[in-house]
Amino acid sequence: MTGDPISPLLRASNLAAGFGTPLFRGVNLSLAPGDCALLCGPNGSGKTTLLRTLAGLQSPVEGSVEGSAILVPTRIPKVRGFSLEDFLRSSCFHESGPWGHLSADSLRAIDEALDRLGIRYLAGRDLASLSDGQFQKACIATALVRRAAVLLLDEPTAFLDVDARLEVLRTLRSLAEGRRLAILFSSHDLHEATREATRILALSPSGVLLEGPDAPAACFHNLR
């Protein structure tokens, strides 16, 4: 499922993307199994655009992306009247039949995702009654249900309290390690995120992707 451990699961070459004027150019990036990469950068630097382009939801202006990835967007509403299990079933849009019925394989994938994220005990609970941290895990589960090999997350820790932030970040790290997934997530919570991430990437205001422990300092003036 995750392929050869050495070969990358997702590779972006000389990527440029944006609406009209590209927000970034010349981005080269490879994500391999086990990677749990933080993507940081100032507001407007193009983090969401990069994630959307890597997920194939937006066409690049230049360059190419090889491999497929699933993006978990930010700010998904907690719709009242959906149990967690209903929510996971709804994410299988293409995997379900015309009346919404799921194959045995998809049902097994839902079971596995609930176990992997430790949220089986919440399966029958209404989404509106979940805490923000529990709901974020549910959102991550929707990508696992669809057998994602590369998981992209846009601000998974936004609006979470400290405990929930740490729990979500540790969950991401353990998913990457345990399931040999490649994970790339954007976050502004640099202090916690840099501790849990195995790689640190930063998009500078000038549209250049930097990598390494010092990359955030090159993008944020107050970190220097």
């Binding site: 939801l57 967007p73 998904i76 509403p77 959906f82 709804s90 929707t142």
Partner: peptide, 12 residues
């Protein structure tokens, strides 16, 4: 009900 971004992410 979960928004256009979520719909796009699921391929709907």
């Amino acid at each position: 009900l979960f928004g256009d971004d979520y719909a796009a992410a699921t391929g709907a």
